[in-house]
Design a binder for these strands. Structure first.
Lengths: 211, 211
DNA sequence: CCTTTCAGTGAACATCTGTACACCGACAAC
DNA sequence: GTTGTCGGTGTACAGATGTTCACTGAAAGG
């Protein structure tokens, strides 16, 4: 090698870099199929390490999956933060939220795809971890909704019911965006969910919680 | 054998029976994981035939998957038929639909689970087939909605937008029911979707399509 | 009766799988 | 400068994988 731009790495840094490479390779490899169909050797080959070296970082594909769940939900929390920011600015709540969703799905395509897939098709422990995280998101969103106009008289239960519906629509929309590569089709999807949320909001403004 | 209750089968009957056994074994085996993680040999072993005999019925796991998509959507169309029947009777449209959904998900647990999983995690051709079928369902439901009270002035587009939202909620609910085995939790899920649909319906009754 | 058809068999193959083990060599700690 | 730590290597093995091929034997058809 004539010149490597790389500065000298400490051992810890190097290990972290390999770990990152494993995580990235896994997201890449299971971007169509599933963790359960992924072999340790495929990952190792993609990373450029020998199969046994995998064990220096994770003790199974399953625990690798759990690490990816955490990482992916960091992406999702970023999305929530942006939705909240858009809402606090003067932006329309529907358009602002959808813009943030589309933007994040594109930027973290692999993370959102990972959640969508492993949520239903992953190893049991991974599915459960994702379910827990989604419930956290629903609770978080519910407290945001409590501050929204028109929900002053709502029960906590109704707030959570609404929050869960929003999350469902959000997840479904993300899945649809992920499954197309045509910008025209994507605009269609966005227009659809825009109308859906507006229909829903009309109901929300009229809703009266009953004991 | 002392006595087999089986009457003599024609060759065609016997072949059909093995085919059925393959389909059932596959639904069973991938009931947690995914088609993409399923091997031809596992299926053969479960059925009790030799691996190569599989090829007498399907030429790959993928085409097996396509057959299961058709079969599973027959179950889903049965559900639609019952929803419609409940609606035509005097039953409340929300409760009637949810009852039908819960009932069908329980009776055809494997079919609904198969759709839920392979929709996002299956082989490409299977995913596409499921997507097509779901769009058919949405169109079908849209024409039903057109006959519903309060949608007389709606555009075709808005009808489809609403239909797609219903299907999204339906799919999500089915997924949730499938992922729990506690009757108490299931009652919770049902109560939640019941409220969600009522919120949504309020919006629907107020909605005015704009050119 | 004889012949054809064909679902299912069984052996063989090259390839891929997870994991065990002994090993290396560069960094870290003393 | 010696020693220990620890990512990463290479070899090895038993088992699973998809697919091939020549086969069997009973039902179907003449």
């Amino acid at each position: 090698m004539i010149e490597t731009g790389a500065e000298p790495e400490s051992r810890a840094e190097r290990k972290l870099r390999t770990r990152r490479a494993i995580l990235d390779a896994t997201l890449e490899l299971c971007s169509d199929s599933s963790l359960t169909a992924l072999s340790l050797r495929q990952v190792a080959k993609q990373v450029g390490i020998v199969p046994t070296a995998f064990y220096r970082h994770f003790d199974s594909i399953e625990s690798l999956g759990l690490a990816l769940v955490e990482e992916s939900f960091d992406s999702l929390r970023d999305l929530f933060r942006d939705v909240r920011r858009n809402a606090e600015a003067d932006k329309d709540i529907v358009d602002g939220s959808i813009d943030a969703l589309v933007d994040h799905v594109h930027r973290r395509r692999n993370h959102f795809g990972f959640i969508a897939r492993e949520r239903v098709a992953g190893p049991r422990s991974v599915r459960e971890a994702i379910q827990r995280e989604i419930e956290l998101c629903e609770r978080e969103l519910a407290t945001d909704l409590a501050r929204m106009a028109g929900t002053a008289t709502w029960t906590a239960k109704d707030l959570h019911v609404l929050s869960s519906l929003f999350v469902t629509v959000l997840v479904a929309t993300a899945e649809q965006i992920l499954s197309t590569s045509h910008p025209e089709q994507e605009r269609q999807i966005v227009a659809t969910v825009r109308t859906q949320l507006r229909m829903l909001l009309i109901g929300v403004y009229q809703w009266q919680s009953e004991g």
